[in-house]
Design a protein around this nucleic acid. Structure first.
Lengths: 287, 287
DNA sequence: AGGATATTGGAATAAATATTCCATTTAAAC
DNA sequence: GTTTAAATGGAATATTTATTCCAATATCCT
């Protein structure tokens, strides 16, 4: 028995090579599975057979005649294709390794970082709930000014957001804790403001405190975090869950920066729109 | 029996709402399935249970207590999430690219940003000179401490770099100008240190000043900027030119962050290597 | 501390699903 | 046109996988 293909690619190649030698039904089935890989990955033999208008036996025969040990073995290839096509980067990275060949470690590392972050950006927009985005912008638009909180790693994102907000002329205050004045900065939050908190896994005390405080004062709260189950989520009116890349046990922030940019610029676009309709056609431009 | 969620998003919401009312094992399981949706979509109950370190029963109990009629019903949601994520991508992107000006809604904007930044990350590693990378790391490795300068927009990157360097135990000082003390901070630079300056198009006076100063004092200088012709380049021992995405006349920083990460972690890797050979096997972990 | 209640693990069972096998049909060869 | 070989469908069977149920354990309450 010829050994079976090890990847979806190999399978494709094999099928087109052997296509002519297959019987009529087997050709029909082969065509179907290549046309509906998703179906094949997830459905049962019976369901697939029905859709392809063949009997279950035929499916199994096809798998066997392609060198597999039963249909299930072939199905695995379709399943791994499904997850690899999504930015699951393990395979991709090894491809990078071989493609770059003789490069110093540092360049290798750069490829890894760039690739991991690229993968994360590919997932991001599909995983953000459009309604949540709109709702967050509603909140920000109505707020007099926006307080932005982020400790340690999240501070970078908070700081970036504050910068971007200033850029679109939205009053923004970074809760920096500078000079140990967290308390004072929190007390500056008024009812007409809104709070954006960014916080990741060992969720900083200060960030939770900020949310609690804002919640008590009745401010609307938007949270960017790394899990639906984050303790920050309980206080939030809108929660964004972002997935960041991890390389060498160092977590990136690319997705958060991208989301942050979108929120700020999205707000800017809205403001321009309403001011065009209204009084001052204050169109901002760039750095 | 409460009716089950109809989509993955609803499931997420339900879990975070009910999380507190779940038992210990059920919480553990819930956390796992949210963290490993891919696994849940494709593996069998037994496999998932093993990975989550619970018994199969628990998995089924969780599904039931979330309103589903058995685990398989819940798994369907994970599967449909898997297939819905993929085909949208190319479709969505081309929609974004053609629909210039049309439907400037926030989600559209998010796709635009994500795609633009993704494109930038794809180019980045090919455009960075491997030798420059190595040389920069040489400089940083030999430096007693690293001073990091960046004004306005570049400040975000400088601040990120400082954070990342601290993370790999490299003494780093951010030249922030806090309290108007640029001069004082610059004077703190010693001959045994190095300077990393980040600066983009309307190149800030302060950044140039910092480079001049460091140059006079004989410090090695690494520059991250946006053009070979940047005024900063004249003082630099190593120059990195990065290309950032521009959407709605707002320039991103994704590539710079990525390069910055690489420099910091690359330095960390080197330090680990030499300390393994040498005395203290100081292996760093995690954020 | 001691009983009541809820939670958990694991083996037993039920259900779903893949695979085999044989009778029947279709195509090929002479 | 008959014989032979290959291909096919579908019911029977084997296997895998989900689910139930009960005994053991932990947790809560008084």
């Amino acid at each position: 028995m010829t050994q079976p293909p090890q990847s979806y690619r190999e399978l494709e190649t094999l099928i087109s090579a052997e296509y002519d030698t297959l019987s009529k039904r087997l050709q029909q089935t082969a065509r179907f599975i290549l046309d509906h890989p998703q179906e094949v990955a997830l459905a049962t033999v019976a369901k697939i057979a029905e859709q392809a208008d063949v009997t279950p036996s035929t499916l199994i025969r096809l798998a066997n005649s392609l060198g597999f040990n039963g249909f299930s073995e072939m199905q695995q290839l379709f399943r791994s294709r499904l997850v690899n096509e999504l930015p699951n980067y393990t395979e991709r990275i090894s491809a990078v390794r071989s493609a770059t060949g003789e490069t110093p470690d540092s360049t290798q590392l750069l490829w890894e970082f760039a690739d991991a972050n690229r993968a994360v950006l590919e997932q991001l927009p599909g995983r953000i709930d459009p309604e949540a985005l709109e709702k967050a912008l509603d909140i920000f638009e109505q707020a007099q000014s926006i307080h932005v909180m982020g400790a340690r790693r999240s501070f970078m994102v908070a700081s970036y957001m504050t910068y971007a907000l200033a850029h679109v002329d939205k009053p923004a205050l970074l809760i920096s804790g500078l000079g140990g004045m967290y308390g004072e900065q929190l007390r500056a939050m008024s009812q007409h403001d809104a709070l954006l908190t960014i916080s990741y896994s060992p969720y900083a005390e200060e960030s939770q405190k900020a949310c609690e405080d804002a919640h008590q004062r009745g401010l609307p709260i938007v949270v960017i975090t790394d899990s639906t189950l984050s303790p920050l989520a309980r206080f939030a009116d809108v929660v964004f869950v972002v997935n960041e890349a991890e390389v060498k046990s160092f977590r990136g922030l690319t997705a958060s920066f991208c989301l942050t940019q979108t929120l700020a610029i999205g707000l800017g676009v809205r403001q321009n729109k309403s001011s065009e309709r209204g009084l001052s056609p204050d169109i901002r431009k760039d750095p």
